[in-house]
């Protein structure tokens, strides 16, 4: 057996691939489900925090800044481990999916809040003043005038950050979530062959290349209509 044969037999073993493909496909869908859950809660919570912060209530803002900095500072894996392995000793157990979903949602929330907040403060003061001078209240001004402009500015960084964090779903493999990586690793330990990892990598490519292309398209698309 040449070393090339050994290489293909290890990483591109057709028999192993056929056996574990269904598991990887299941993991593929689970990754998508997990990512969608994270995106939904993370973006919503981040936007909500940014809106609350715009009310400029001092103690509340300090709390928001603290929480946001905390979740931006902690490695996501540490948060997952805390929730999954740490909380049970406090009498609270959660499955790996929930722990991963919550952890990455917090991280996405923190980054989203910062990005939205930067967007809100980047909208010129004159926009607020013009709207308020016509009798529009604080919240309608935020909703109709400021946020649409802030969100447009933030879509490129937000897209990139969202992609980066959804890739973190692979961390779920550490807490027994059989998303793509989890399914692939399980395949490797049962078959004693790394081909499932090749399949897993392929699954990530299939999943994220379109997402990255979409992100690129978003960046060019969201310039003002001139």
């Amino acid at each position: 057996m040449t070393s090339w044969d050994r290489f293909t037999d290890s990483f591109f073993n057709a028999r192993v691939a056929a056996e574990y493909l269904p598991k990887i496909i299941d993991g593929f869908w689970l990754t998508i489900a997990l990512a969608l859950c994270i995106i939904a809660t993370g973006l919503t919570a981040g936007l909500a925090l940014a809106v609350i912060r715009s009310f400029s209530i001092r103690p509340l803002n300090w709390l928001i800044i603290f929480v946001v900095d905390l979740f931006r500072a902690l490695p996501p894996l540490v948060i997952i481990a805390l929730l999954y392995f740490g909380l049970p000793s406090a009498g609270l157990t959660m499955d790996g999916f929930t722990a991963t979903w919550l952890s990455l949602s917090f991280v996405l929330m923190a980054f989203t809040e910062e990005i939205f907040w930067a967007g809100i403060t980047a909208v010129p003061r004159g926009q607020w003043e013009a709207a308020r001078s016509t009798g529009l209240g604080f919240l309608p001004t935020l909703g109709h005038v400021v946020l649409p402009q802030a969100i447009r500015m933030t879509i490129p960084p937000l897209t990139n950050r969202t992609i980066a964090i959804t890739k973190g779903t692979a961390l779920g493999s550490v807490v027994a979530v059989s998303e793509i990586l989890g399914a692939a690793q399980a395949g490797v330990s049962f078959s004693f062959n790394p081909t499932p990892l090749t399949l897993g990598a392929l699954a990530y490519v299939v999943l994220f290349v379109p997402v990255v292309i979409f992100g690129r398209w978003i960046e060019t698309r969201f310039a003002w209509k001139r």
Binding site: P124, G126, Q127, E129, A130, V145, P148, Q149, R152
Partner: peptide
């Protein structure tokens, strides 16, 4: 009120 910088909503 009319402002020096117009302050139209660009979107």
């Amino acid at each position: 009120m009319v402002f020096q910088q117009f302050n139209l909503y660009p979107h």
